[in-house]
Simulated assay, not measured.
Amino acid sequence: MTVVMGADAAEADRLQRLAAYGIVRRDDSVLLVRIGPKSVDDYKKWMLPGGGVEHGEHPRVTVVREFKEETGYDVEVVRLLDVDAEHRRLTGPLDFHAVFALYEVAIVGGTFNPSGHGGVDTCAWISLAELPDLPLLTPIGAALEKFLPHVALNTSGQLPS
């Protein structure tokens, strides 16, 4: 985390994060993970499996590692779909800038484990018909809309009433 000094110090701390996520479909479903309680701002929102790139790690390696940790599946990268970014204020206040790579992945082994790991509390195969009712992280919802045509999603990130 970069601490802002001088006149801007009272405004917010700054954090820039590089991450990699994977999208995989099975029939009319997509595999998603739900953010756990460690995230004050995004608890119970859904996103794609993936996470932060560790120092010296290639984003392709990140998505394979994170998929295993969060879902139990072994995956291989099929192709890079997109690189995107999000900039927003988080609780604290924290000036958060996320840059992420989105990969299409294929399951090649492992055993599905819905119990979650680290920052996620569960994972599930979600039917495309259910996606519009889920609270999704805004950039993940936008990516799903782009790569799952004809699906209108809840990209507001708000939990349903």
Rank of each mutant, 00 (worst) to 15 (best):
I23D: 04
V24M: 04
V24D: 00
V24R: 02
R25P: 05
R25D: 05
R26S: 10
R26L: 07
D27T: 07
D27N: 08
D27Y: 03
D27S: 10
D27V: 04
D28Y: 12
D28S: 13
D28L: 15
S29D: 10
S29N: 13
S29P: 06
L31M: 04
L31C: 01
L31A: 01
L32Y: 01
V33A: 11
V33D: 01
R34E: 04
I35N: 02
I35P: 00
I35L: 12
G36Q: 00
P37K: 13
P37H: 04
P37N: 05
K38P: 10
K38D: 15
K38Q: 13
K38H: 12
S39I: 00
S39M: 02
S39H: 07
V40S: 09
V40T: 11
D41P: 00
D41S: 03
D41H: 01
D42G: 07
Y43N: 09
Y43E: 05
Y43M: 03
K44R: 14
K44M: 15
K44T: 14
K45R: 15
W46M: 01
M47P: 01
L48P: 02
L48H: 00
L48D: 00
L48F: 03
P49V: 09
P49C: 11
P49Y: 07
P49N: 09
P49M: 07
G50I: 01
G51V: 05
G51Y: 00
G51A: 04
G52N: 13
V53Q: 11
V53I: 15
V53R: 11
V53K: 12
E54V: 13
E54G: 10
E54P: 06
H55N: 15
H55I: 15
G56S: 13
G56W: 12
G56T: 09
E57R: 12
E57L: 09
E57V: 10
E57T: 12
H58Y: 10
H58K: 11
H58M: 07
P59E: 02
P59M: 08
P59H: 04
P59W: 03
R60M: 08
V61I: 14
V61C: 10
T62E: 04
T62F: 09
R65K: 12
R65S: 11
R65P: 06
E66G: 09
F67M: 08
F67Q: 01
F67A: 09
F67N: 06
K68D: 09
K68M: 09
K68C: 06
K68S: 08
E69Q: 14
E69V: 07
E70P: 06
E70F: 02
E70L: 06
T71V: 03
T71A: 00
T71F: 01
G72M: 00
Y73S: 07
Y73E: 12
D74W: 05
D74Y: 14
V75P: 01
V75N: 05
V75D: 02
E76G: 11
E76K: 14
V77A: 08
V77P: 13
V78K: 06
V78C: 08
R79F: 04
R79P: 05
L80Y: 12
L81E: 01
D82V: 05
V83G: 07
V83P: 06
D84E: 10
D84Y: 12
D84A: 13
D84F: 15
A85Q: 12
A85P: 08
A85F: 14
R88A: 06
R88Y: 04
